[in-house]
Simulated scan of single mutants.
Amino acid sequence: MSNFTEKVCFFLTWVFQGSNYLSAYGYGVMHRMHHAYVDTEKDPHSPKYDSNLFSMMWRTKSIYQDINNNRIELDTKFTKNTPQWAKFDNFASSTTSRVIWGLLYTLFFYFFATAWWQWLFLPVAFLMAPIHGVIINWFGHIVGYTNFQVNNTSKNLLPFDFLMMGEGYHNNHHKYSHRANFGGIRWYEIDPTFYIMIFLNSIGIIQLKKRAIAIKS
Rank of each mutant, 00 (worst) to 15 (best):
A113K: 03
L103P: 00
F182Y: 11
L157E: 02
T106P: 01
L12R: 01
N147K: 05
N70A: 10
I67R: 08
L120N: 02
I215Q: 13
N151E: 14
I63F: 04
L200D: 07
R71P: 03
G144F: 10
T153F: 08
F11I: 15
M56L: 15
F121W: 14
A180T: 08
P83R: 02
I203R: 06
D39H: 00
Y169E: 02
F162N: 00
Y169S: 02
R71L: 11
H174K: 00
N151G: 14
F112G: 03
V38H: 02
I205Y: 14
H35I: 00
F16N: 02
H173W: 01
S94N: 11
M164W: 03
G168Q: 01
M57V: 07
L208V: 06
V124H: 00
W138C: 02
W58E: 14
T193C: 05
H173Q: 01
L107M: 07
L163C: 07
S217H: 13
N70W: 06
E41S: 11
N152L: 05
A212C: 11
N52C: 05
V124S: 07
M197Y: 14
M57P: 03
F10D: 15
F182P: 03
N171M: 11
N69V: 06
L53V: 14
L104I: 15
P44K: 01
S55L: 10
E189Q: 15
K87P: 10
Q149R: 10
K155E: 05
